[in-house]
Design a protein around this nucleic acid. Structure first.
Lengths: 149, 149
DNA sequence: TATTGTTATACTCTATAACTATA
DNA sequence: TATAGTTATAGAGTATAACAATA
């Protein structure tokens, strides 16, 4: 269901070397999946990284910026400006930890929670490629997590 | 071998929802792998996308820009400037196809081939996480390719 | 002194529109 | 009219250094 329908397919591109590299495969799979996710999230005015932030705060009330940033791989400077924007957008609050006034405690506002729930509904089962059986999907995720967890 | 050695681990961050999303897993695995690859490639003055370009041209002599860009997921405008740079760097040549003067035929120069071989040596078996057995590594790549091929 | 977070800034990467030349 | 590639440009993402406040 790709180039098959066109008149005459040229010799396929030889990617044999690259296809043996795990990093290349991870990136290409990600690039295949992400456009649809982006499109759905755009409907609720969220970018992927913002959705990720909402998800982590939703499941980890009162998490601080350091742990959030480490978890989702966003550096402190970039996280600061990202959270500035999301806070201005009314999605979350930041308050200093009384026990350690250096750290900021993050929490979702009601609109933040609502936007997150709406986003989740749109994303649900969206990144399940039809080419994978449920078992393969689970197995793939399991193996990926052995890489980065 | 992560936070285990530190004095006292805080409750781990709950990522249960995100960890069920295939796209998130692909990205995090990629982010885990890519820094070492980047570091190795930097030694031969290449960025990942440049290494990818060299690899595709090396295995597909006389490929044109359209097919290269489709294969590695780089848009025509971005590919044009990327190839400008690589050509100026002496890594490859572009010549118009006599049979269709719109398209550019790409080829590696000798320095391009040499740089590519050097890069390959540095990258070899670099993106094989110790946490995966050889079988798991192969299985993971197989499943990823079911997603994007 | 070390840690948390911020500001400023530069650099890279990606996306879009308008264009040239060839077909 | 359609296609291959280019140019220009804007936007998003990422990286680095210097800083303030707190511990």
């Amino acid at each position: 269901m790709t180039a098959k329908a066109t008149s005459r397919q040229p010799a396929p591109v030889d990617q044999s070397y690259l296809l043996g590299l795990l990093g290349y495969n991870c990136l290409q799979a990600y690039l295949k999946i992400i456009p649809q996710v982006k499109k759905q999230l755009k409907r609720v005015q969220l970018r992927p990284v913002e959705f990720t932030v909402l998800a982590v705060i939703a499941d980890n009330p009162d998490i601080n910026q350091k742990r959030l940033g480490e978890t989702i791989n966003v550096s402190p400077p970039n996280l600061a400006t990202l959270l500035d924007r999301m806070q201005a957008d009314g999605l979350l609050t930041r308050q200093r930890n009384p026990n350690d006034k250096r750290s900021q405690i993050l929490a979702l506002t009601l609109p933040g929670k609502q936007r997150y729930e709406k986003a989740r509904a749109g994303v649900a089962d969206l990144d399940r490629p039809a080419s994978l059986s449920p078992d393969e999907h689970d197995q793939l995720i399991h193996l990926l997590q052995k890489v980065f967890l």
